[in-house]
């Protein structure tokens, strides 16, 4: 399972970086979203997978840490997802504005501030 998820994480990174390098605005956003997903999944995978156990210790149950999932990476991934959601929504608004102002979705046209 770890191997499968590792491959998925790797493909997400590769796909994200590839999309960022394209010349179209909206693909840039897709690339950034893929990168964010890749790192979320990586947090989740790298901290160890436990199958079919929630991160809850039943009342009166024993505190055997190998038996329950680690809640912290789940909390981290959740926080990162929420933040990613917010940032991407703003980025999307910005891309839309860019398209209106520049009149093109070609990233090579967007260089009036370059030096």
């Amino acid at each position: 399972m770890i191997l499968l998820l590792a491959i998925v994480v790797g493909s997400l990174y590769a796909g994200g970086l590839y999309m960022i390098m394209r010349r179209v605005l909206i693909k840039l956003i897709i690339g950034l979203a893929l990168l964010a997903h890749a790192s979320n999944l990586l947090i989740f995978t790298a901290s160890g997978l436990i199958r079919g156990r929630a991160a809850l210790v039943p009342a009166g149950g024993s505190l055997d840490f190998r038996q329950v999932a680690d809640p912290l990476p789940q909390a981290l991934a959740l926080t990162a997802i929420v933040i990613g959601f917010g940032v991407l929504a703003f980025a999307l608004a910005l891309v839309q504005r860019t398209y209106q102002v520049v009149g093109s979705d070609d990233l090579d046209q967007i260089r009036s501030t370059d030096t």
């Binding site: 947090i43 990476p73 981290l76």
Partner: peptide, 11 residues
């Protein structure tokens, strides 16, 4: 996202 990756691996 690189920072987040590094944080996950650190954990």
């Amino acid at each position: 996202s690189l920072f987040l990756t590094a944080a996950g691996l650190l954990y």
